[in-house]
Structures are given as C-alpha cells and as structure tokens.
Amino acid sequence: MRRDSFAGFHPFVNLAYFALVIGCSMAFMHPLSLAISLIGALSYSVVLNGRKAILFNLIYMLPLLLVLAAFNPLFNHAGATILFYLPNGNHVTKESIVYGVAAACMYVTVIIWFSCFNKVMTSDKLIYLFGKVMPALSLILSMTLRFVPRYRHQLSVISQAQRCIGRDVTQGNFIQKARGGLRMVSILTTWAFENAIETADSMKARGYGLPKRTSFSIYRFDRRDIIVLAILTALAAVVLAGAAWGSNSIRFFPSIAVKGYSPFGAAVYGAYFIVCLLPVMLQLMEEVKWRFIESKA
C-alpha cells in the first residue's frame, strides 16, 4: 500500500473524520450533498487502493446502484407526478424514481466510505482508541484477532498429525472423512480452551488488571493533528448548522422540494465539499511538498 497521508494522523482524528463523513452521508439526501460525498468517497478509495478500487467500484458498486435504484419505484408509490403504470396496475411516480436513485447513491457511497475505513482504521488503531474507554472489551477484540490465525495454524498441525495415522479429512470414504474433520475440530476446541486458560494465568502473573497498561502501537497527538481536528470541527459546525437550518434538506414526497440558492447554503456545500475531500487534499499537499523538497540535482 502506498503511504497515505491521512492514515498517518492520530487514530482519533481518523475515527472522528469517518464518523462525521459516514453520518453525514447517511443523513443528507440532497442530490448535491450526495454527489459531493460520492466524489469524495470514490476519489479517496482510488487514492488508497489504486486500480483495485476502480475495479471494485465498477464491478460491484455500479450494478448494486442500479438494482437498488430500481427497488424503490417498484414498491413505493407515493408522490404526485405519475409517469406510467406497471402491468399489475400500480403506478410509478417521478418522486419515487428520484428517491430510489438518491437512496441507492447514498447506500453505495456509505459502502465505499466503509471500504476506506477498513483500509485506514486498522484493528490496532481501534484497539488503541477503545483500550482507554473499554479496556476489557478491546482486549477481547485484540485477543480474538490474534486467535483466528493462530487456530488456522494449529489446525494444520493437527491435520498433519492425523494424516500420519490415516485419519485426516483427505483419507477414507465420505463418512470417515467427515468423522476425521469433526475429530479435528474437537481436538482444536479442547486445545484452544486449555491454551487460553494458560494464557489467562500467564496474563495474571504478569500483572493484568493493573492500571496504566501500554499498547502495541504508540500514537502521539501532535500539532498537525490539532490543526486538522480544528479545521474539521469548524467545517463540521458549518455543515451541521446548515443541516439544522434546513439549507441542504430535500423533501421527496408528495412532490420534490428543495431550498433555493442562498449564500449561506453555498457556504454549507463548500464546507461539506472540503470535508469530503479532506484526505485527498492532504495527500495531494503531501505529494507536492515531497516534490518540492526533493533534490533537483
């Protein structure tokens, strides 16, 4: 993965950003808001994943968008402008088609934002963040994440041992294979519990439960984090004020109604645009800076 500038910020900034942007994407249904958020999500996913993101968006997201957009007008007949009638006698309205397209865009945008979230908010960052508020629960999460690959490895060890005595899943007829598989799962479960209790006793012996535990990854909240967080807070305040004022709201039923142009509305959309494109802009700034300080000799 290319180094992403935004992912290098403090995990709290990352989490606050994704909470804001995903929450706003779910709540704002105005077409302009949707377009801004979709552009932000698409460009950031391309920055993060390169060509893989383009393929993912084309192969999975585009068909999903079309299917979801078709779902609403088929089952929702609210709206004043009747366009045509379906063979079963129900009518299709302009409003429900527009709403269907908007809801599908919203859904797809949220999924793409989550694909960026997966890439940026790695599990160690989440555990670092929640380790302070919920130490026990985040410890469960981190242990589980460690156990899964460990059990896979142990399963292959068990499988090799069983193969030596002819009781592996690859040996014998169907019933013998199934029995071999179940026996391996049973061995693994017993081993897992015995091993876990040992782990627990070892944790206790090393002082689990004492205050001031350290975590694997260490993050510092430094000046650039404060700057970005302050900018984000200011922009979020503008966007949320706009939402409370209703300048980016839209009414779909019974007829479509949006607020007309106003300077404040323009400011709200401007702020939202900057919010959605913030990670991409940070990345661009980083690259420009890099090119600038690169030796020209």
Partner: peptide, 14 residues
C-alpha cells in the same frame, strides 16, 4: 477476570 475474557475471546475466535 483474565480467565473470563479469554474464554469469551476463544468462543468468538471459534
């Protein structure tokens, strides 16, 4: 307790 956490983590991992 640590033992309780570990048992929950094992069940989740399974």
């Amino acid at each position: 307790q640590a033992r309780e956490l570990v048992v929950i983590a094992v069940l989740t991992a399974i």
